[in-house]
């Protein structure tokens, strides 16, 4: 409150250098160290000769430069500063980890060679085999999308039916109790035998893995709707259709999303197993194909892509939930 008096003797705040963003400087140091290690020490080339070592070093050096600039200037721009601050510690550690990885694999072969690969080999795989990897990602996504959409839709409808109708529950509940807990992969041999194509068999398996958690959670969501919500709507003239669509389902939606998240996790597992064992495309198939050729670099590369794909899909589902359930903010802690 007495600021006007206090700062009168000092220089205008805007004229003073606001200071360094230290994590940025540290990150620049670790990334520069990684670049120096990559470029400065010779690769152990008993088995493979890497062609991308120099490029990896350049990329690391370029990032080190970027972090140095950020370290010097980020505090000048509050908006930028807010965005980079949470990344700081991770950037420092990542640079150090890259340097360590480089030392343990390519430079000193502490980790035995064909089984562990240096970063430059991953870059090589992405450069040489990106087409096949991209095709595999698309094939996996397409199979997953079909199976997940089918499973989520059927699971949702079954869940609403179980929660709403006693007659439906009479028939569906015992079946759910018996078949639901069975891991979808247990159906695998039978499914590949019964279905006309491995694609349809895999779609069925993924749908099964997705459908069960979605059905159970939707059911519990519909069953736990406050009965007063129905009374209110009924006294206002609502018919059963309105009660299901406008009361039961919106009220159950938070539960449904828990089921959708669980189903998505389960569907990833089944997707990979199905692709490894039956389908002749997709990332799961790519993994087992790479294993057959002892191409460990390709396996790591495919694993990284798969991790990005799965976490991307989870993020997408989170975004959808945040949109549909924005009313929950302030009611429930997420």
């Amino acid at each position: 409150m007495s600021g006007a008096v206090d700062i009168a003797g000092e220089a205008h705040p805007a004229l003073r250098w606001p200071g360094l963003w230290w994590p940025g400087i540290l990150a620049a140091i670790t990334w520069a160290a990684a670049a120096a290690v990559t470029q400065g020490l010779p690769d152990q080339v008993d088995i493979i000769e890497w062609t991308q070592t120099g490029n990896v070093a350049i990329a690391q050096a370029a990032l080190a430069g970027l972090f140095l600039v950020l370290g010097l200037t980020a505090r000048l721009l509050p908006a930028l500063h807010r965005r980079v601050v949470p990344l700081g510690p991770w950037l420092v550690v990542l640079g150090a980890a890259l340097a360590g990885w480089q030392l343990l694999t390519a430079k000193f072969s502490v980790l035995p060679m064909p089984f562990f690969v240096p970063p430059q080999q991953l870059v090589e795989v992405y450069q040489d085999d990106w087409r096949r990897l991209a095709e595999s990602v698309l094939a996996s996504l397409w199979l997953l999308a079909r199976g997940y959409a089918l499973g989520a839709a059927v699971g949702f409808v079954v869940g609403v039916g179980l929660g709403w109708s006693k007659h439906f529950g009479y028939w569906a509940h015992p079946l759910m109790r018996l078949v639901g807990p069975l891991p979808a992969t247990a159906w695998l041999p039978l499914a590949f035998f019964l279905f006309p194509s491995s694609a349809s068999a895999s779609t069925f398996l993924i749908a099964l893995a997705t459908g069960f958690p979605v059905a159970v959670l939707t059911w519990s969501g519909v069953a736990s709707v406050d009965p007063d919500f129905y009374d209110v709507a009924r006294t206002l003239g609502a018919k059963p259709r309105f009660l299901v669509l406008k009361v039961a389902i919106p009220a159950a939606l938070p539960h449904v999303f828990v089921g959708l998240f669980m189903g998505l996790g389960a569907s990833f597992a089944v997707l990979v197993v199905a692709e490894m064992l039956g389908v002749r495309s997709g990332l799961g198939w790519y993994l087992s194909w790479a294993q057959g050729w002892a191409a460990y670099g390709n396996m790591y590369a495919a694993l990284l892509v798969m991790a990005l794909m799965c976490s991307g899909l989870i993020t997408l589902l989170f975004k959808l939930r945040d949109r549909l359930l924005s009313w929950q903010k302030g009611v429930v802690k997420w």
Binding site: D226, D231, T235, V247, A251, W327
Partner: peptide, 14 residues
């Protein structure tokens, strides 16, 4: 014939 209950029972999603 409309009822107003002891709890407002508003739908939290609306």
């Amino acid at each position: 014939r409309v009822v107003v209950f002891q709890d407002p029972t508003l739908y939290p999603w609306r």
